[in-house]
Amino acid sequence: MTVSETTMNQPVQAVPMLSVRGLQKIYKVPGGEVEAVRDLTFDLAEGELVCLVGPSGSGKTTLLKCISGLMEQTSGTVELNGSKVTGPPKSMAVVFQEYGRSLFPWMTVRANVELPLKNQKVPKNERAALVDAALKSVGLDHVPKSYPWQLSGGMQQRVAIARAVAYRPQVLLMDEPFAAVDAQTRADLEDLIRTIWKQLGVTILFVTHDIDESVYLGERVIVLSSSPTVVQEDLKIDLPAERDQLNTRALPRFMELRSHVYAEIQRAKLGPVTEQITAQRRASLK
């Protein structure tokens, strides 16, 4: 298989925007412990769009909760722009998979997007401008007075994205945000993410179980093993920057990359990968 070198071989930047080092999470459950994440190490440079893909049950959500400071890891560190993450950092926003449960049903679309800014004491005029711009960027400037539950699933997720955009985070974490919307809406939302990423220059970590989605969206794809999770592969996606659903997905290179990721995921499902096998695999790719 002809896959280009992994980013492991590229020079790492001085201070990465997001740095995950030796992250481990062990859940204490009645009758023992469950190791959800074993040892994860990777970096995100400023302005990168990286997709994390792994088989279901590979601790993706656990990982994201640790990175976002919503959950404490057992060992290892997460650093945002050089400072350690111990609780939810101010310059980070999270978009959850359950759009229906992440927006406040008692607030209008506009109030939902505005709330984090209000909480940050952003002056009223500036707030209004940011909310307007955010709603416009997700194509929802026509429904500010609606309630989230009056909208379709895809539109609700757009509201959640608008809320994150208006917040102007340095890092945007997305936890399988499109897993619960239909395929057509999903394609639209994928393009929306690429557009927003280019417009804002924000660093995005996008978690998904969808292989095509990870290759289509990411500049880099990090493949996770099954639980207990380690990084199985860190793959650079050398597709053109301008992507569209029809042409990009038809590129031979897209097919190659997706097949490669697919094979990796299949391998991940077979069981925990030892460092040795990973090393052999990497050597054979060079």
């Binding site: 919503l70 999270v94 359950e98 449960r101 992440s102 909480n119 809320r163 917040y167």
Partner: peptide, 21 residues
């Protein structure tokens, strides 16, 4: 709701604002 709670936490909505909103 735990997801709403996480949303609040990730946006730093705490204390009185958390109660109120």
């Amino acid at each position: 709701d735990s997801v709403l709670n996480d949303s609040c936490r990730s946006y730093g909505i705490a204390g009185f604002a958390r109660i109120r909103y």
